[in-house]
């Protein structure tokens, strides 16, 4: 087998293993709940029968590993269980399927994240590469100081400053990003402007700094000096000698920051009351709606793992040492 393929398969297996362990950890969440949580969910007035029925529904009368496989099996078929909220002590069950809660919101979150990525990734790469090329210049120092400050700010600070200026003082964009399933595309983009801008600012700062460091590291290689000593033009040195070796570091930077974006989304959604999965998770944490929390955590973790896996695989595929084995 070609070494690239075997290494890729190894990474894939490793990724799946990680996902497996992560799912166990998330599943254990419900195991770690204090014993009386059924009471807490159903209310103090719940009768013993309701509690017993609820416990049965959760499968608490079965051993943990069986419940784990039931849960994972369900998840693989798109069934994340039933929400805790909407249960009443009387035994009346108005709870909803977790999938129905998550579905539309996941789409919203992906829209926001995608919109941010489309703006942020090219911008950050451009800034990072130019700053690295003109290292030490005024431009480099200015970009550096700005981004160092930006990464030190909490997301909600950036968000509220934007709201203050662009939402409140000069109302250009709406400060509340309320969208629904039937909001038209451009209307959606307009309403998401401030959240996307917030995320972009934060992500670009991180990503630009990492890109700059990666490129500087690359440009210090002896083969780049050699290329210069061959009298090649700066463009040629960058495009032909630096770029083919830059994919791996750059892709890793992108993946890292997209993964970070997924997390940043949580805070930003709350600030702008954006109906996404992040806000759903925060609400579920406050109401201790464990099935929803589990589902959200699993989705976030899986995305994070998959993005990193993808970056790994791209680094492998672009590595000349692996592509052309001895």
């Amino acid at each position: 087998m070609h070494p690239v393929v075997s290494i890729m398969l190894q990474r894939l297996a490793l990724g799946l293993m990680t996902l497996f362990f992560v799912s166990i950890i998330i599943f254990m969440a419900i195991e770690m709940l204090p014993g009386d949580f059924t009471q807490a969910v159903l209310g103090q007035a719940a009768t013993e029968e309701t509690v017993a029925a609820f416990r049965r529904e959760l499968g608490l009368d079965q051993p943990a590993y069986i419940r784990y496989f039931d849960w994972v099996g369900g998840v693989l078929q798109g069934d994340f269980g039933t929400s805790f909220s909407g249960r009443a002590s009387s035994g009346v069950d108005r709870s909803r399927e977790v999938v129905d809660l998550i579905g539309p919101r996941l789409a919203n979150t992906l829209f926001l994240a995608g919109m941010t990525a489309v703006i942020a990734v090219p911008l950050a790469l451009l800034l990072g590469i130019t700053a690295a090329l003109w290292r030490g210049s005024l431009y480099d120092r200015a970009v550096n100081a700005t981004t160092l400050s930006t990464i030190s700010m909490p997301e909600f600070f950036v968000a509220y400053i934007l709201i203050l200026f662009l939402g409140s003082l000069y109302p250009v964009f709406p400060s509340l990003a309320n969208v629904s399933a039937d909001t038209p595309f451009w209307e959606r983009v307009y309403r998401c402007a401030l959240p996307a801008m917030t995320l972009t600012l934060v992500i670009v700062a991180h990503m630009m700094r990492m890109t700059r460091a990666a490129i500087i590291n690359l440009l210090a290689s002896p083969y780049i000096e050699m290329a210069r000593l061959k009298g090649l033009s700066a463009t040629r040195v960058i495009l032909f000698h630096a770029l083919p070796n830059a994919w791996a570091p750059i892709v890793n930077v992108i993946a890292f920051n997209l993964a970070y974006l997924i997390v940043g989304v949580v805070v930003v959604e709350v600030v702008f009351v954006y109906p996404g999965i992040g806000q759903l998770m925060v609400d579920a944490v406050t109401t201790r709606d464990i099935p929803v929390v589990q589902a959200c955590a699993l989705i976030f973790a899986a995305t994070y793992i998959l993005l990193n896996l993808l970056a790994d695989i791209i680094s492998i595929v672009t590595n000349p040492r692996l592509l052309h084995p001895r």
């Binding site: 990680t18 992560v22 950890i25 998330i26 969440a29 993964a259 970070y260 997924i262 997390v263 949580v266 998770m281 925060v282 579920a284 944490v285 201790r288 709606d289 464990i290 929390v293 589990q294 959200c296 955590a297 976030f300 973790a301 994070y304 793992i305 990193n308």
Partner: peptide
């Protein structure tokens, strides 16, 4: 490999 804010939210719940 679990984003720490997400993990923290889950554990806090």
């Amino acid at each position: 490999s679990i984003p720490s804010l997400i993990f923290a939210l889950m554990l806090l719940s």
